[in-house]
């Protein structure tokens, strides 16, 4: 699915990712954990193609293509989806119009016929139900005035609409109440298939009870410093990061 090799990325001349390696195969779920400021959101943004970051070395191979030079929209159309840690508010653009434009762009990129108006609305309805997104929310402007939890749910709704191959969930669990966490995790699990993969960034083991990862990685100072299975998350929950930091900084 995706291979990241020796990735170095910086912003405003400051290097954040410092030789990061990661490989994800189809159907796998990888959790990434790590202290605040270690570069998790930076990695997500660099994979999604945010142009403020400069990739100074390394490569990202997505389904056989090096995507470093690819625009964010082309990456999205190729099947990468980022659920933002802090979703953006877009006043004046309804969720319906936003999703319609997104799906039309994607269809065009893939040389497909766009959905008919009827099919589009049917799909909207189906996916709203999947994440139990309130009908009244979908008529409003994208994320405008949404509560923290509503914004996260809206991210997963968009993911369901776009049916990506690789989903990156950047702290989608933060800000969710216990019920919402279950709903969002269920949504993610329902979209899971042997062809699709996910990167789940989180600070809490709790989410990983619902979305069970195949691998857990620890990102620290711009590198993956430790990888393991789901037990590593339990160990972190119990011991914190100090032992890792001590090991690495030594």
């Amino acid at each position: 699915m995706i291979q990241i090799k020796n990735l170095h990325a910086s912003i405003n001349g400051k290097e954040i990712l410092k030789g990061l390696n990661l490989e994800i195969k189809p159907g796998e779920i990888h959790a990434i954990m790590g202290p605040n400021g270690s570069g998790k959101s930076t990695l997500s943004a660099v994979i999604a193609g945010r142009e403020d970051y400069e990739v100074t070395a390394g490569e990202i191979i997505f389904n056989g293509k090096n995507i470093i030079e690819m625009s964010p929209e082309d990456r999205a159309c190729e099947g990468i989806f980022l659920a933002f840690q802090y979703p953006i508010e877009i006043p004046g653009v309804s969720i319906t119009n936003f999703m319609k434009t997104a799906l039309e762009n994607k269809a065009k990129y893939l040389n497909q016929e766009p959905l008919s108006a009827g099919d589009f609305l049917k799909k909207m309805k189906e996916k709203k139900q999947l994440v139990e997104l309130d009908d009244s929310l979908s008529k409003r402007s994208v994320n405008e005035g949404f509560s923290g939890g509503e914004k996260k749910r809206n991210e997963i709704f968009q993911m369901a609409m776009l049916e990506p191959k690789l989903s990156i969930l950047d702290e989608t669990d933060s800000g969710l109440d216990i019920d919402a966490l279950r709903i969002v995790a269920n949504g993610v699990n329902k979209l899971k298939s042997p062809q699709n993969s996910a990167i789940v960034i989180t600070h809490y083991q709790r989410l990983l009870d619902y979305i069970v990862p195949d691998f857990v990685h620890i990102l620290y100072k711009g590198k993956i410093v430790k990888s393991g299975t789901k037990e590593l998350a339990l160990e972190l929950e119990a011991k914190g990061y100090d032992w890792i930091k001590a090991e690495i900084d030594a």
Partner: peptide, 11 residues
């Protein structure tokens, strides 16, 4: 906002 749209496949 521009990047958010692009990340959804919108040119």
């Amino acid at each position: 906002a521009l990047f958010y749209c692009q990340s959804r496949g919108i040119s």
